[in-house]
Nucleic acid binder design. Structure first.
Length: 224
DNA sequence: GCATTAACACGTA
DNA sequence: TACGTGTTAATGC
């Protein structure tokens, strides 16, 4: 079984559960590492876990029939995902790729459903997460259609630091300009130019593969 | 026009 | 050597 410390540092929602449910959740969690560039899930897979990102970075997306990679979201540390496929008992609709070496925490299906059936605290948590993600995706569609590339890059970065979805993020993330481009749907030269623009505006610092957020709120509304 | 791809030089782990 | 960054030239929508 994983240690108390591992549990509390990687499972942000645990503190919302009463002690007996925490203990049950802890017994249902295992860890797994995915190497950089490897797929964790392919479209069509069935999954048997609710999945939490402990460290690293995942990309949720798919490949179009013409072979183009489309990204729907970055999954940063402390973010949990996959509840939709578990609850609907359907195959995963999207690919999940590790952009760098990534450690995952896996809550097994039986425990997930036990909590779902028995824990009010857990259900509130799920509703809150799903609600927040819904809002995030709707906003993303809006931004894709209304904002220029600078605005899209700023929103994509800000969405990685959503405090409801990934509350342990702090202010820094290891992410290359190439990866930022993939998340925001722009090319690397554009990501490069926008990062310089945002840095000049004092909203973030970008250096050597890490981005430090200085003004998250302004980043979230950049370009409006 | 603006973005994209491809390519090059540079600095660093 | 491998990677990330900064930049430019050719090309496309």
């Amino acid at each position: 079984m994983i240690s108390e410390e591992q549990f509390l540092t990687s499972v942000f929602w645990a503190r919302e559960l009463p002690p007996d449910e925490q203990e049950r959740a802890r017994r249902g969690i295992t860890f797994r590492a995915i190497e950089s560039g490897r797929y964790f899930i392919h479209r069509g897979d069935r999954i048997d876990n609710w999945i939490g990102v402990v460290s690293g970075l995942l990309r949720l997306g798919s490949i179009t029939t013409s072979g183009k990679a489309v990204t729907y979201a970055g999954l940063p540390p402390s973010c949990w995902f996959g509840e939709g496929s578990l609850l609907k008992d359907e195959p995963r609709q999207y690919d999940v790729l590790a952009l760098r070496r990534t450690q995952l925490a896996l809550l097994n299906r039986a425990t997930f459903f036990w909590l779902y059936e028995n824990s009010v605290a857990f259900d509130r948590l799920l509703v809150r997460l799903i609600n927040e993600r819904l809002g995030q995706f709707i906003a993303q569609v809006e931004h894709d259609r209304t904002l220029d590339s600078a605005g899209r890059v700023a929103r994509s970065l800000a969405s990685l630091f959503n405090p409801v979805i990934s509350p342990f993020m702090g202010t820094q993330i290891e992410i290359s300009q190439e990866e930022i481009g993939l998340l925001a749907g722009v090319s690397r030269p554009v990501a490069n130019r926008v990062l310089q623009e945002l840095e000049k505006a004092g909203l973030l610092r970008s250096e050597g593969g890490t981005v430090t957020i200085l003004k998250l709120e302004e980043l979230r509304f950049y370009g409006e």
